[in-house]
């Protein structure tokens, strides 16, 4: 993509980037970090978690930085009281949605949801919390899924489909009943399309998919996706 460069302003800083960049990647080039959860470099942006919302001048609408292409002349604001408030509410509603008890979670201290929660000073959830208690699927030789901790970011689904290319994982149902499933909603051991590649466990931002008996610090490796994508470019 070597078309004419795009010029825009992010938090008052002049940024120049190529056409087709997103606000998120453009911001990174000038050292501005926008918080993300569902975004993962190398995967198609999902725009689902809404943590990366930013303001764009000239409209009241908020845009997900991870999925919004830059436009010339755009003026982006990544920090404001409103954005701060909404990011806190994203985190609070996620915490209230399912069972998140850090002290008994395998991902404790290595969880992106926890990191963001600390970052934004969420010290209280002002909604009733829903302690979902769905059965954990540990039928696979070593991969485990605890859907009670899932934040439905679909990183695992996209990694499985776009990078591993097997599409074992997908979503079932909709709304609050949405869940990650294997093949036609089988137990993981019965999902014959799974190649046991572990990419899902590497990219899961929380403790929902993990490798049994393995130190989570060792398992987690979300950057591997960008690495693979880059290597495949060389192959072409």
């Amino acid at each position: 993509m070597n078309t004419h460069p795009m010029k825009l302003k992010i938090d008052g800083v002049d940024v120049e980037c190529s056409e087709g960049s997103t606000i998120l990647t453009a911001a990174k080039t000038v050292g501005i970090n926008i918080p993300t959860l569902c975004y993962l470099e190398g995967l198609t942006p999902y725009g689902g978690c809404r943590l990366c919302l930013v303001e764009v001048s000239g409209t009241n609408k908020l845009f997900p930085a991870c999925a919004t292409p830059v436009a010339s002349g755009m003026e982006v604001t990544t920090q404001s009281p409103k954005l701060h408030e909404y990011r806190k509410m994203v985190l609070q509603t996620l915490l209230a949605e399912r069972t998140h008890i850090c002290s008994v979670c395998i991902a404790n201290d290595h969880c992106e949801l926890q990191t963001q929660t600390n970052q934004y000073g969420v010290d209280h959830v002002f909604y009733e919390r829903n302690w979902s208690c769905n059965e954990i699927d540990s039928t696979h030789d070593f991969l485990v899924i605890d859907r009670n901790r899932c934040i439905l970011c679909t990183r695992c689904v996209r990694a499985c489909d776009e990078i591993e290319g097997v599409h074992t994982l997908d979503l079932k149902f909709h709304g609050k009943n949405t869940d990650v499933i294997m093949d036609q909603d089988e137990l993981w051991s019965k999902a014959c399309s799974c190649t046991s590649c572990r990419k899902c466990a590497k990219v899961c931002p929380v403790g929902a998919i993990y490798v049994e008996g393995e130190n989570i610090e060792y398992t987690k490796d979300p950057q591997v996706i960008a690495f693979i994508v880059e290597r495949r470019k060389c192959l072409k």
Binding site: Y46, G47, G48, C49, R50, L51, M89, V90, T93, L94, A96, E97, I151, L152, L171, F173, H174, G175, K176, N177, T178
Partner: peptide, 9 residues
């Protein structure tokens, strides 16, 4: 549909 946090959660 369950895609985004504000609506789903």
């Amino acid at each position: 549909c369950g895609r985004c946090t504000p609506c789903r959660a």
